[in-house]
Design a protein around this nucleic acid. Structure first.
Length: 567
RNA sequence: UGAGGGUUGGUCUAGUGGCAAGACGACGGGUUCUGGCCCCGUUAACACAGGUUCGAAUCCUGUACCCUCAGCCA
């Protein structure tokens, strides 16, 4: 094994075992070359991240290389915008293809020559059947197909016709190049599959050089072969195509990588099909590909997820061949775990309730020291202004508190984090009878947050000094869908969660938050992790995205109490 | 009812003839200036039926159920 090999991440899996066995047997002379082959027709999502981590991960683990290859064989769907976004996303995830950036379209000349070789071998022919006829001739899952009347064309005629296809002498749909295999094959893929079709479209890289384009099955195995890939790792839906992958390379007698299939990722409460994601974007159901609710890499990035959390998630979900649905809770666990260790803490009040400390001198301000991250003392401390009028979270006060509610209530004493103990002495109501303000007293002896007499309080609240608060907008995100498996719904758009985005326009934030950079995740103590949005933040008003909530014991108790009441 | 795959706690994943393990979740407790983190504990699985074997999640046979394939998409 090469000396630069890395430790495997996560538990072992069947693909690693295949690679290890191949290495042991000396197959591929000890090389490990993988590739990530996206089609540039959409943005990358978390399912692609699994594939990226697998391919780049194995290459790194075994001291090999991983190629980034754009599978751009269909000019009617692909464009450069997608190429750029994909490169950005792979880089952001932390992977480096080094010099190995390729395009299937780079191989169009060689692919054309391989097609000529197949024709000369008598293994491919130009078929002039109409598309509907080809479908009818293919047979069904249980009945064999019929041979095309054009199947017996001579090598010379096929060569001539194929060259004329390439020269633009035929219209789209008039003819195709097909492999000559077996119209009665049990595997439908093998019933003379189409190799080349005519598309009179300009390609984003080869422009108007070609009007014939290779199909996936033809281009993919040959691209793998040309790049001397060793392990061609793809998803389960290509299992049936492996027979064709092998047939093309064997018939041509050229270098033959091994295709290995694994189960694609399914994540609860979201969809991971490119088609459905495009529908959400085009239908205006979300705010673009990078909407923080989207399961795209760019969506997670904007939401405030870190590459490390996503990589860790990919390691932990494992790889296997069975269809599965991973619980979104695992992804949330991964980002909490990362951010808990690394994110600086701040205080921010989402739904402000004004509090006046009656025995605190008006006009006075003092600074209190707060710890930036209790998990990492190297992150230091900061000063927070305190004054007579503050804001606390509306839900941290209840006039008539139920059992197990430890927070502020009339006559009750609680701690303001890093500040003082306060006791609620009165409620001020507005004309509608709603609670408009709280009157409290503070105990000067508890400065910093501890009582010299050793008395305890049941809870600690976050707060922001009214005069010093920065106004901001906060966006709370919830599951995009109301059901675990929206893909199984009759219409997945009908199960979109109407509450997936909640905008809070009147948040009061600790002044230090103004200095936080765009996209740097932080914790709002007791609430969750947030990060400043790169699209909507302005110089005078920051907009914060909630990455994920903190685990919330009280929310569970509340839910339970509500359920008990119903019974 | 053609072919190719699959089936281990609620979820994901190990196991490769010898004590069914880990993570997430859920539940309970401890600790705590975040009802966070951390710590401890509980819960809970080999699809089914036969067979081989001293011994089977693992090997064999059969059954059931699930997924993929009938694009000139990938």
């Amino acid at each position: 094994m090469p000396t630069d090999a890395k430790e495997p991440s996560g538990p072992s899996n069947f693909i690693r075992q295949i690679i290890q066995a191949d290495l042991k047997r000396g197959k591929y002379e000890g090389r490990v070359v993988t590739r990530f082959p996206p089609e540039p027709n959409g943005y990358l999502h978390i399912g692609h991240a699994k594939s990226i981590c697998l391919n780049f991960g194995f290459a790194e683990e075994f001291g090999g290389t991983c190629h980034l290859r754009f599978d751009d064989t269909n000019p009617s769907k692909e464009n450069v915008t997608y190429v750029e976004s994909i490169k950005e996303d792979v880089r952001w995830l932390g992977f480096d293809w080094d010099a190995h950036l390729y395009f299937s379209s780079d191989y169009f000349d060689r692919l054309y020559e391989y097609a000529i070789s197949l024709i000369k071998l008598g293994k491919a022919y130009v078929d002039s059947l109409a598309p509907e006829e080809i479908r009818a001739y293919r047979g069904t899952l249980t009945e064999p197909g019929k041979e095309s009347p054009y199947r017996q064309r001579s090598v010379e005629e096929n060569l001539d016709l194929f060259q004329r296809m390439a020269a633009g002498e035929f219209e789209e749909g008039e003819c195709v190049l097909r492999a000559k295999i077996d119209m009665a094959a049990a595997n439908i893929i093998m019933r003379d599959p189409t190799l080349y079709r005519i598309r009179k479209r300009s390609h984003h890289r080869t422009n108007d050089k070609w009007c014939i384009y290779p199909m996936y099955d033809f281009a993919h195995c040959l691209s793998d072969s040309i790049e001397r890939i060793t392990h061609s790792i793809c998803t389960l839906e290509f299992e049936n195509n492996r027979e064709l992958y092998d047939w093309i390379l064997d018939t041509l007698g050229i270098y033959h990588p091994q295709q290995i299939e694994f189960a694609r990722l399914n994540l609860s409460y979201t969809v991971l099909s490119k088609r459905k994601l495009i529908e959400l974007v085009d239908g205006g159901f979300v705010d673009g590909w990078d909407d923080p609710r989207m399961p795209t890499i760019s969506g997670f990035r904007r939401r405030g997820y870190t590459p490390g959390a996503i990589r860790n998630f990919c390691d932990r979900i494992g790889v296997a061949k069975r269809d599965s649905m991973v619980d979104l809770a695992l992804l949330e666990h991964c980002i909490r775990e990362d951010l808990n260790k690394h994110a600086p803490r701040f205080m921010g009040v989402l739904r402000p309730l004004r509090v006046v400390i009656e025995n605190y001198p008006a006009g006075e301000t003092e600074s209190l020291e707060a710890i930036n991250n209790p998990e990492d003392e190297r992150m230091g401390t900061r000063l927070i202004p305190f004054s007579r009028e503050l804001y606390i979270e509306r839900e941290d006060f209840m006039e008539d508190p139920p059992k197990k509610f430890f927070r502020l209530a009339p006559g009750r004493e609680v701690r303001l984090r890093y500040a003082y103990f306060i006791t609620c002495t009165g409620i001020v109501r507005d004309e509608n009878g709603e609670i408009a303000e709280l009157r409290c007293t503070y105990d000067p002896a508890t400065r910093g947050g501890d009582a010299p007499d050793g008395r305890k309080v049941k809870s600690t609240l976050h707060w922001v000094s009214a005069d010093h608060a920065v106004n901001g907008e906060v966006r709370l995100y919830n599951h995009l869908f109301t059901v675990e498996n929206p893909a199984a719904a009759e219409d997945f758009k009908a199960v979109l969660n109407p509450d997936s985005l909640e905008i809070l326009g009147k948040a009061k934030l600790e002044p230090a938050l103004a200095g936080l950079g765009i996209g740097e995740p932080c914790q709002f103590e007791r609430l969750g992790y947030f990060c400043k949005d790169l699209k909507y933040s302005t110089a005078d008003q920051p907009v914060f995205n909630r990455v994920v909530t903190l685990r919330d014991q009280w929310a569970k108790i509340k839910k339970q109490q509500k359920a008990d009441k119903k019974q």
